[in-house]
């Protein structure tokens, strides 16, 4: 199992379309993926779960990945978040 802390850096935070993109990537991997804020934890493969995090801009997020393809899964999810979900701001 590997984990990494990242910060939500896009202006709108982990909103619906951003969450959908993240969940879509997580579902491409066998590994279990969870996202944890300082208040709650969610399965990164469930869009309704990810949305309950209500993670606004600047929220620290711990990504935990456990499975055979965990390194690639973590890499892609981290890149998506740091790329501001492709939103440019």
């Amino acid at each position: 199992m590997i984990r990494k802390e990242v910060t939500v850096c896009n202006r709108l935070g982990l909103h619906a379309r951003a969450a959908a993109k993240l969940v879509q990537i997580a579902n491409q991997f066998q590994a279990q993926v969870s996202l944890t804020t300082n208040q709650m934890c969610a399965d990164a493969k469930s869009i309704l779960g990810v949305l309950t995090l209500a993670a606004a801009k600047d929220t620290p997020l711990i990504i935990e990945v456990d499975g055979p393809d965990e390194a690639e899964a973590l890499s892609q999810i981290e890149h998506l978040i740091q790329d501001r979900f492709g939103e440019g701001e």
Partner: peptide, 19 residues
């Protein structure tokens, strides 16, 4: 049903539960 959330519960110090 589980996705109906009262924001006051989420914002309380105890936090909410995952839906």
């Amino acid at each position: 049903q589980g996705a109906i959330v009262s924001v006051s519960e989420v914002m309380s110090p105890e936090g909410g539960e995952e839906g």
